[in-house]
């Protein structure tokens, strides 16, 4: 543990207690070791029920490990005295925007967090304005939240967390209810926070294009981390990824299929730009007919 580590999970196990006497406990996390560095953009992938959401909840002390430890900014989540400090450092955005907005007016909603932290009113005012500006929602400060689109609501939820001045934001499938435009809006905000403001981002998603934006991808299955690496490293093994019930970007799949037919393209192409570059190179050395 040192000052460049945001979150450290050591040999973490978690189970949900059985709801009735004859039922069994449900194992959710089965021995996870993971270190997340400050300023990192980490994407968690995994099929439904793999343990991603449980893991996120262990990262901000909503759940505590049954065995093992989770340190957030050097603070042990098992120590109840740390709980509020941990939740101030690590904010969480959930899937359904309608379940996490409490205010009747956008700026009231954003003020809710810092109010609870006992921040003085004039400081709250500054933080609310600054947070709304950061997510590009200043013009909507006096709107009723129900009049906003899904993407706008999630940006308000993010602003509410920013107003608590966290070091890390966790998004638990926060883009899965949004349309393509809403997803882009939220992702742009996350990239800005991460690249320009140094905020650590942990993003859970089923959208592989979003995973490609990460510094690092970790795949969770059966409560364990079964793969970990850069997006290029993770998606280059197409068969393995599909075997995990996941998918690869379409572009990656195109080259995977071409290579199966005897081509020798790189197997870690993730974006359209990379794809065009590699096709261009191959055209230059390998032109057929007069199509070019």
């Amino acid at each position: 543990m040192n000052d460049i580590t945001m979150i450290q999970a050591k040999n973490v196990y978690y189970y949900y207690k059985a709801m009735s006497e004859n039922a069994e406990n449900v194992e959710a996390i089965n021995g996870i070791d993971l270190e997340i560095k400050k300023g990192e953009f980490l994407v968690l992938l995994g099929r439904n029920g793999s343990g991603k959401s449980t893991l996120c909840r262990l990262f901000n002390a909503l759940l505590k490990p049954r065995t093992g430890t989770v340190f957030v900014n050097g603070m042990d989540t098992l120590n109840d005295e740390n709980t509020w400090l941990i939740r101030k450092d690590v904010g969480m955005v959930f899937q359904n925007p309608d379940n996490q907005i409490v205010g009747n007016v956008v700026e009231e909603d954003v003020a809710f967090g810092p109010e609870n932290l006992g921040v003085p009113p004039e400081e709250i005012r500054k933080r609310v304005d600054r947070s709304l500006k950061t997510v590009g929602m200043s013009d909507f400060a006096l709107y009723a939240p129900h009049r906003l689109s899904g993407g706008q609501k999630q940006k308000v939820a993010i602003a509410g967390i920013l107003a608590m001045e966290p070091q890390c934001i966790i998004l638990d499938e926060a883009t899965s209810m949004l349309d393509p435009w809403g997803r882009k809006e939220v992702l742009d905000v996350l990239l800005d926070l991460n690249k320009n403001r140094g905020i650590t981002v942990i993003h859970v998603t089923h959208h592989m294009e979003e995973a490609c934006l990460a510094d690092r991808v970790a795949v969770v299955d059966n409560g364990k981390i079964i793969a970990e690496g850069t997006p290029a490293e993770i998606f280059s093994d197409v068969e393995r990824i599909k075997g995990m019930g996941l998918d690869v970007p379409q572009v990656t799949e195109v080259f995977y299929k071409l290579n199966k037919k005897g081509y020798k393209f790189p197997n870690d192409i993730l974006t359209v730009d990379e794809a065009l570059k590699v096709i261009m190179e191959n055209l230059a050395v390998n032109r057929i007919g007069n199509r070019n």
Partner: peptide, 10 residues
């Protein structure tokens, strides 16, 4: 929106 929140295989 029958697939919202489902993993790719689902």
């Amino acid at each position: 929106e029958p697939t919202a929140g489902l993993d790719p295989k689902g």
